[in-house]
């Protein structure tokens, strides 16, 4: 790790923040290009950085060697000693100056052509399959951290930081959007890679609708909105270890699932099939990123 980050990378604006640290848009003075600086403050003792932090950073650096086209590049890692007990670890990522939210808003009416949606989805799933095969769960996939270059190349950002941040995040509640959260996350059950597929399903639907699919205002409200579309899951599928029970929702969604084409009217038959496999309540039965890439939807066109 380099010792000094201040000289080469100069912050120009704050683009994100939270309990754990701050994210800056910065300029690499050597190349003139923009980069994203993500720093996290970690506690240190005489042995230096905690092993968990070193391990996470090492994993991110190892990913870099694959040079995957659909994830942002980690360009540099710097550690700066702040006090005897605290070190600032700064990760320097490639910065793409357009996110999927902006890209979707920019599309002229009536929205993106279906071939373009298919291309974006294939790239998104490729990036996700790559992360998942390296046992990285993104956990917070949303249009704001799916980047799209001017050439239409999709790059996933903000992955792999969750575990570095996690111990710090518990301290201060950070306002996060619930709209792309998987049911098992909302129910506070255990979760793994399928949570990212749920988010991808929500985003898939949003590409056609040009507005988010489930806009809940609380965890319960979010779950209610989900069940109105996919139907209330049967008791047997409900996770056992959670506070909210299936019967708490029986009032909300007395009917079965509503036809998906009612909420996503423009989608093709195969597209709808794939969407439903992504928006499957039971994470174990939800389609994986690799299997989704093999879905007949991607042979259409």
């Amino acid at each position: 790790m380099a010792q000094e980050s201040g000289v080469q990378y100069e912050p120009v604006a704050e683009i994100g923040g939270g309990a754990y640290g701050t994210v800056y848009k910065a300029r690499d003075r050597q190349s003139g290009q923009f980069v994203a600086l993500k720093s996290v403050r970690v506690q240190t003792d005489q042995d230096g950085l905690p092993l968990s932090t070193v391990r996470e950073v090492a994993l991110l650096k190892r990913l870099e060697q694959f040079d995957h086209p659909n994830v942002v590049k980690l360009m540099d890692v710097c550690a700066t000693l702040r006090t005897d007990q605290e070190t600032k670890v700064t990760l320097v990522f490639e910065h793409v100056d357009q996110d999927l939210k902006t890209y979707l808003n920019k599309a002229p009416a009536p929205g993106l052509p279906s071939s373009q949606i298919q291309d974006l989805m294939r790239q998104l799933l490729c990036g996700l399959a790559f992360l998942h095969s390296n046992r990285i769960v993104h956990r917070d996939l949303k249009p704001e951290n799916i980047l799209v270059t001017s050439r239409g190349q999709v790059k996933l950002a903000d992955f792999g930081l969750a575990r570095i941040y996690s111990c710090h995040m518990a301290l201060t509640p950070v306002v996060v959007t619930l709209w792309y959260r998987a049911p098992e996350v909302l129910l506070q059950s255990t979760y793994a890679t399928p949570v990212d597929i749920w988010s991808t399903g929500c985003i898939f639907a949003e590409m056609f609708r040009r507005k988010p699919l489930f806009c809940g205002e609380s965890e319960v409200d979010q779950l209610g909105k989900i069940f109105q579309v996919i139907g209330l899951p049967v008791e047997e599928e409900w996770p056992a270890d959670v506070k909210l029970k299936q019967h708490n929702f029986s009032q909300l969604s007395p009917h079965g699932p509503c036809p998906i084409t009612e909420v996503v009217p423009e989608i093709s038959h195969q597209g709808a099939e794939l969407l439903l496999e992504m928006l499957t309540f039971d994470p174990l039965r939800r389609i994986s990123a690799l299997n989704a890439l093999d879905h007949p939807y991607f042979q259409e066109g």
């Binding site: 120009v12 604006a13 996110d99 902006t102 808003n105 920019k106 001017s150």
Partner: peptide
């Protein structure tokens, strides 16, 4: 410092 892709 704007997001360069955002024409809006």
């Amino acid at each position: 410092v704007m997001m360069m892709g955002s024409t809006a």
